[in-house]
Design a protein around this nucleic acid. Structure first.
Lengths: 216, 216, 216, 216
DNA sequence: TATGAATGAGTATTCATTCAT
DNA sequence: CATGAATGAATACTCATTCAT
C-alpha cells in the first residue's frame, strides 16, 4: 500500500478533488483551443473553480500545460498496460496493437489534439518536464517483444525494426485523426463515419502486416 | 495570356510587391507561431511594411490566414505538376510519388506546420475559402492513373484504392515531420539527421510498395 | 532654429500633445502614489487618454517612470539656468542659491516625492537612463564659481568644498519637505505654515553662511 | 517588575517568539520593498511562518506596518537613552549628539528607509498610532538641555532654538543616507566609502557647531 | 498608396484577506 | 497555536482593428 492509497482527511481530499477538476478541465480546454487559446479563465470556470486556484496548485499556465501533457501520456500508458498480448501468436498480437492504437486515438481526440499542439510549439513544454520521458518511454516496450517473437517463429522479416514498425503504426493511426479537417476539404469523405473508419482500420492492419510478414 | 501576365505600371507593381511581401511574411510567421501566436505586428514588421497595409490588402487576420492556406496549397500543386511520371513503369512512378511527397514535407516545414495549425482549428478557415477545394483537389489526380496503370499491368492489387493509397503515403510522410518533437522526447533518435531520414524514406517506400504489389 | 522648433503637422502636434499630457499626468500620479502605487490606469485617466497609449509612447511603466525622472530633472535644470548670479557679490549669490533651492522644493513637491521614491528603489531607474547623468550633472555648476569667487575675495574659507556645500544646502532644504509628515507627529509644528517656512529659510541661510564665511 | 518581565509559559514564549520573528522580518521586508512592495507572503516566509499568523497577531498589513513604525522608533529611543551626555561640556555634548545621530542612520538603513516610506504615505500610518507620539517625543529631549547649558555658559547663541538645531542635525545626517542613490548618479562619489562618510561627519559637526557657537 | 495615432476588450498573474480544520 | 485551501478585486500589459491625414 503506497502513501497515495492512504485515506485522506476531509480537507485534503477536497483539495485533491479541486486539483483534479482543474487538471481535467485543462485537458478539455487545451485540446479544444490550443495552448494560447486555452484561457485560464475558461479552465477555472470549466472546473467550477477560481483563477487563483490554478496558480495555487500549478504555479503558471505553462506548468499546468506540462502537467496536462504528463497526464495524457500517463492515461495512454495505463490503457496500454491493460493490453494483454499473446506472444504465442505474434501476427494476432501485432494486429491487436494496431487496433488498440487506432481506437485510443479515435476515442481520445484530446490526446491527438494536445500532442499536435505541443508539436507546434516544437516540444517546448515536454522538454521542461522531467517526468514525460519516463512516462512515455514504455510505449515502445509492448511492440519489441511481439516483433521478436514473430521473427523467432520465422513469421516476420528479420530486417524489420521495432522503431520503424512503431512509427509506421503511429503514422497510420494518428494522421487520419489529426488531419481529418484539411483532408476532408478536398476528399469527399466523412472521416467521422464509422464505415470509413472501419475500412481504414482494415486497411492499415493489412499494410502493417504486409510490411513485416515474410510471405503472404 | 491572362491579365496577370500583362506588364504592370510602376505603382501597381509596387503594390503587388508589398502584397507579396506581406503574404510571404505571413506564411513564415504563422508557421512559426500558429494562428493565435501570429501577431499582425510581427507579420507587418517581417514584411518591412505596416499593420495598416495588412488590412488594406487582406481585410482581416482571418482573411490573411485563408490566403496563406491557399498560397501553400498552390505552391504544393505547382511543385507536384512538375513531377513527370512514366506510366509505363507504375512501380517506379509510385516510388517517385512517395519520394516527392516526403521531400516536399521535409523541405517545406511551413506547409506541415500550417496544415497542422489549420487542423487544430478544425478546418475553420479552409471552409471559408472557395479556392482551396479547387486548388487542392488535384493532389489525388497524380496517383489514380499510376495505380490504374499498375493494376492493368497486373502488378498492383485490384482491391487497392487510390484513396487509401493516398492516405497511406500522406500518413507515412507527414507524421514523421509533424510529430518529431514529441516523438524525440522518448525515442532516442534525431529526426533531423539525414541518416534517419534516408532510412525512413527507404522504409516507407518499401511499406507502400508491399501494400500494393501482388507478389514480392 | 532647431528641428524641434519647426512647425508640426496637425496630427504630429496632436500626438506630441498626447505624449505630453501622459508625461505630466505620470509626474502627478507617481508623486502622489509612488512607483508601485502609480497605476497605469490612473495615469491614463488623469491624462484623459487610454492605457494603450502609454505603451504606445513609452513602452512600459518602467520606461515611463524613467522619462518622468528625466523630465523633473530637466525642469529643475531649466529653472536653475534662469538664476542669474552676480559673482561680484558672492555672499549675496550664495544666499540666492539657498533661496532658490528652498523655493524650488517647496513649490515642486512632486520633485521631492519622486526623488524619494527613486531612492527607495536604490536608484534602479536612474541607472537605466543614459540621459539623467547629463541632465543633472549641471546642478553643481552654479555653486562652484560662487564659492571660488568668495574664496578669491577672501570672504569664504579656503577649505570649503563645493561638494560639501552643495550637500549641505540640499540636506537643509530637502529634508524639511521630504520628512515633514513623520516630523510633525512628534513636533508640534505645522510644516505647511508660511511662518515656519520663513523662519526655516532664514535659519538655513544663516547656517550655510556661517559654514563658509571666514569671520562673522 | 512589569507583566512583560514575568517568566512566560512554554506556549506563551513560543507565541511571543513567532510574533517577534514576524515583526523583525516585516522591518526588513518593508525597508527593502516599501509598503506596497512588502508582500505578506514575503514577510511570512522571511519569518519562517505562515501568512495566517500575520493576521492572527497583527490583524492586517496596515496594523503590522504601524507596529513596525513603533518598533523602529522604540529601538532608536532605546539607543538614544544609552547616550550619556556631560552637560558640563555642552560643545562636546552637542558633537556627541551629531555623531550619535549620524552613526545611527548609517548603521540602521532600515530606519531611514521606513521613515522615507512613511513620509511618501504622508504619515498615514503614524497618525493611526497612539504610541508613536509618545515614543518619538523623547527625541528632542536630549538636545534641549545641552543647548540651554551652552547658552547659560555663554558659549552658544541665545537666539538658537532647539527645534531648529534638531532639524539641522537631522537634515545633515539623514539626507546623505536617504538620497545617496540619486545623488551618486551625477556626483562622482561613493557614498558607501568610509572616507567620504568620515569627511562628511567632520563637515557636519563643523557646520552644526558654527551654527550655535558665539565666536569661533 | 501609405502610415502614425487611437481604442476597447481581453489576458496571465498577483495580492491581501478569510474560511475550515 | 498553527496551517492549507479558497476568493475577488486588481494590475501591467497585449491584440486586432479603425481613424485621420
Amino acid at each position: 500500500m503506497t502513501t497515495s492509497d492512504l485515506p485522506l482527511g476531509k480537507r485534503a481530499q477536497q483539495a485533491k478533488d479541486t486539483r483534479d477538476k482543474i487538471l481535467k478541465a485543462a485537458v478539455r480546454i487545451f485540446a479544444k483551443n490550443g495552448y494560447a487559446g486555452g484561457r485560464i479563465e475558461s479552465i477555472s470556470k470549466a472546473a467550477a473553480s477560481n483563477d487563483r486556484m490554478i496558480y495555487y496548485y500549478f504555479g503558471s499556465k505553462e506548468k499546468l500545460f506540462i502537467e496536462v501533457l504528463e497526464h495524457i501520456y500517463l492515461q495512454f500508458n495505463q490503457a496500454e498496460r491493460k493490453l494483454k498480448l499473446d506472444l504465442a501468436d505474434p501476427a494476432e498480437a501485432l494486429q491487436r496493437i494496431v487496433e488498440f492504437t487506432w481506437s485510443y486515438y479515435l476515442k481520445h481526440p484530446e490526446f491527438v489534439l494536445i500532442l499536435s499542439t505541443e508539436n507546434l510549439h516544437r516540444g517546448k513544454h515536454s522538454k521542461k518536464s522531467a517526468n514525460i520521458k519516463t512516462i512515455s518511454s514504455s510505449i515502445l516496450a509492448n511492440l519489441a517483444p511481439v516483433l521478436e517473437a514473430g521473427q523467432q517463429r520465422g513469421l516476420f522479416r528479420k530486417d524489420a525494426s521495432a522503431r520503424n514498425l512503431y512509427l509506421t503504426i503511429s503514422s497510420l493511426t494518428y494522421f487520419y485523426n489529426s488531419n481529418q479537417y484539411t483532408l476532408s476539404v478536398f476528399m469527399d469523405e466523412d472521416f467521422a463515419s464509422s464505415t470509413f473508419q472501419q475500412e481504414w482500420l482494415a486497411h492499415i492492419k493489412d499494410v502493417v502486416m504486409r510490411s513485416v510478414l515474410i510471405s503472404l
